[in-house]
C-alpha cells in the first residue's frame, strides 16, 4: 500500500466519524454552559452527558488523526531512502503516540465515572498526558528528524544530486 492510499483511507475514516458526530443529536451542554454570574465564562457541565450521543467517537477520531499524521510524515521521506529501520521507528513512534492518547482518554473517562483524579506536576493526570504526552509524542518525530537528518532527510548523495540539478538548470538557462 502506498502512503497516499493510507492517507486517503484515513481521511475517509475521519470524515466518516465527523459525519456521525454532526448527525448525532447534541445534548444541551455539548459545548459547556454559561457561568451563572461571571460574564464571558463557561463551565463544562456534565462531561458524561456531553458524550452521551457520540460515545467514543472522539477516541477513534484521534487514533485516525495520529495514524494520518504518521502517514503524511512518512510521505515526506524520499521513497528510495525508506528502509526497515525507518519503518520500525515509525511503528514505534506511532505506537507511543497512540499509547499516550489511550492513557489520556481512559484517564478522562475514569474521571468522568468517579469524579476523582490525582494532581501531578500541578495538573490532573489526564491533563499532564495532554500537555507533555500529546506534545511530546511528536517531539519524538522532531528529534528523529534531527538525529537521522543525513540518513533520511538530506542524504549527502541527494544533496549532491540537487547541486548537480542547479548546475544543469543554470547551464540550460545560459547563466554564468
Amino acid at each position: 500500500m502506498k502512503p497516499i492510499h493510507a492517507v486517503f483511507a484515513l481521511l475517509l475514516c475521519i470524515a466518516g466519524i465527523t459525519i456521525f458526530v454532526l448527525l448525532s443529536d447534541p445534548p444541551p451542554s455539548a459545548t459547556g454552559v454559561s457561568h451563572p454570574t461571571v460574564n464571558g465564562m463557561s463551565l463544562g457541565g456534565d462531561g458524561t452527558e456531553k458524550l452521551s450521543s457520540i460515545g467514543r467517537a472522539p477516541y477513534y477520531f484521534q487514533i485516525a488523526v495520529i495514524l494520518l499524521a504518521g502517514s503524511l510524515l512518512y510521505m515526506g521521506i524520499p521513497a528510495h531512502r525508506r528502509d526497515r529501520l525507518l519503518r520500525t521507528w515509525f511503528a514505534v513512534g506511532l505506537a507511543f503516540a497512540i499509547f499516550v492518547w489511550i492513557s489520556l482518554y481512559t484517564g478522562y473517562e475514569s474521571y468522568l465515572q468517579t469524579g476523582q483524579t490525582k494532581i501531578v506536576f500541578g495538573f490532573p493526570v489526564p491533563t499532564n498526558w495532554m500537555f507533555w504526552g500529546i506534545w511530546g509524542s511528536f517531539v519524538a518525530f522532531d528529534l528523529f528528524y534531527v538525529f537521522t537528518f543525513r540518513r533520511y532527510f538530506l542524504h549527502p548523495d541527494d544533496e549532491a544530486a540537487f547541486h548537480q540539478l542547479v548546475k544543469d538548470c543554470e547551464a540550460e538557462r545560459g547563466d554564468d
Binding site: G32, K50, L104
Partner: peptide, 26 residues
C-alpha cells in the same frame, strides 16, 4: 502554585482543567 489553582478549578467545575476544557472533545 499550579496545584492549588487546579484544586480550585476541580472543586468549582472540573471539566475546565481536564484535557478538553468546557467546549468538549470534538
Amino acid at each position: 502554585g499550579f496545584e492549588q489553582a487546579s484544586s480550585i478549578l476541580l472543586a468549582n467545575d472540573g471539566e475546565d482543567v481536564m484535557p478538553f476544557g468546557t467546549l468538549g472533545a470534538m
